[in-house]
């Protein structure tokens, strides 16, 4: 049950940033209409974040990660179910890691 001061500070910073987006976005963008360009940037951000997270991890993760990614994409495309995608993908990565 430890609580490191730096970790607490990081959690507080994340909490403020997140609530700032949830509440601040409502306050600001109901008064100022975002330009179409800003709106386009914001809609592309989620895909950009996930690609930025996934790409280096795949490049450095080697064969188990590639196998897991392929199975995750296939399972998710077929079922559209997050639990199935996570479970089958992780199982595939694990299996290749064990067999290798």
């Amino acid at each position: 049950m430890s609580l490191a001061p730096a970790t607490l500070a990081a959690i507080v910073a994340m909490a403020l940033a997140t609530y700032g987006c949830r509440a601040g976005g409502y306050l600001v963008f109901t008064r100022i209409r975002p330009t179409p360009f800003l709106r386009a940037v914001l809609t592309y951000i989620p895909g950009g974040i996930f690609m930025s997270y996934v790409t280096p991890a795949l490049v450095h993760g080697g064969l188990p990660s590639f196998a897991g990614a392929a199975v995750t994409v296939g399972a998710m495309a077929a079922t559209r179910n997050l639990a199935v995608g996570i479970f089958l993908g992780t199982a595939a990565a694990w299996a290749v890691w064990v067999l290798r």
Binding site: R22, G24, G25, Y26, L42, T43
Partner: peptide, 27 residues
């Protein structure tokens, strides 16, 4: 270790920017 509040806060902000556009839709 120790954690970086600046990096963590900034990452949370960028990842959650999409939430900023969601509230106004429910105005």
């Amino acid at each position: 270790h120790p954690a970086s509040p600046l990096a963590a806060g900034f990452a949370a902000m960028v990842v959650n920017l999409r939430l900023a556009l969601m509230g106004p839709v429910l105005a």
